[in-house]
């Protein structure tokens, strides 16, 4: 029988153990009130941030000399289909220096789907925030040019919301005359 303790550790596990304490210590000293919760699953670290502090936290994570999360890999949305904090915006960060990934999440209430834009921190967030606006109707405050990406300009709905029917709303997307 193989001893499970002797199995080779995943490189991601080693990296997580190496980075987690350092990262959370820094975040706790600077942004104790901004962090809602920390979640660890399959060697991936997720931190829930309060909505209004997201730009501040992102700026710190990018500029800190030890962490250097200089690459924003993706911004996306999620509809949790529940009352209250219905939407989430998810930021996937990557540190080229530490080769470490971090996921930030922000909860957004249904009645007021606004969140500050992080385009001032990473300009690459421009199109990703536009896509999230297009699909979920989440409004990014401070975004330079918040328009739809995929759907036509005059389209009124946000297709990835859970209450949008799969086959669309008849008549919402006009066809050319035959």
């Amino acid at each position: 029988m193989k001893n499970p303790d002797n199995r080779k550790k995943s490189i991601y596990k080693i990296l997580l153990e190496f980075m987690k304490e350092k990262l959370l210590n820094k975040l706790n000293t600077h942004f104790k009130d901004s962090i809602e919760s920390v979640n660890e699953f399959r060697n991936e670290l997720t931190v829930f941030i309060k909505k209004n502090d997201i730009v501040k936290v992102c700026q710190f994570l990018r500029d800190d000399d030890e962490l250097r999360f200089d690459s924003l890999r993706d911004v996306c949305g999620a509809d949790q289909n529940k009352t209250g904090d219905r939407y989430e915006v998810i930021y996937n960060l990557y540190s080229l220096k530490n080769k470490f990934r971090l996921r930030l999440k922000v909860r957004i209430e249904e009645e007021n789907p606004h969140v500050p834009s992080v385009t001032s921190v990473w300009p690459t967030a421009d199109f990703e925030e536009r896509e999230t606006y297009d699909m979920f109707g989440i409004i990014f405050e401070g975004h330079p040019d918040l328009r739809r990406v995929y759907m036509p300009e005059e389209f009124e709905y946000h297709p990835l919301r859970k209450d949008f029917p799969l086959m669309g709303i008849p008549g919402s997307l006009p066809l050319p005359r035959k």
């Binding site: 995929y150 759907m151 297709p159 949008f164 029917p165 799969l166 086959m167 669309g168 709303i169 997307l173 066809l175 050319p176 005359r177 035959k178």
Partner: peptide
């Protein structure tokens, strides 16, 4: 692609 964004056959708008 049986979804909202794809035309279900181009004969809906051209012969």
């Amino acid at each position: 692609y049986r979804v909202y964004s794809v035309v279900q056959g181009i004969d809906l708008f051209i012969p």
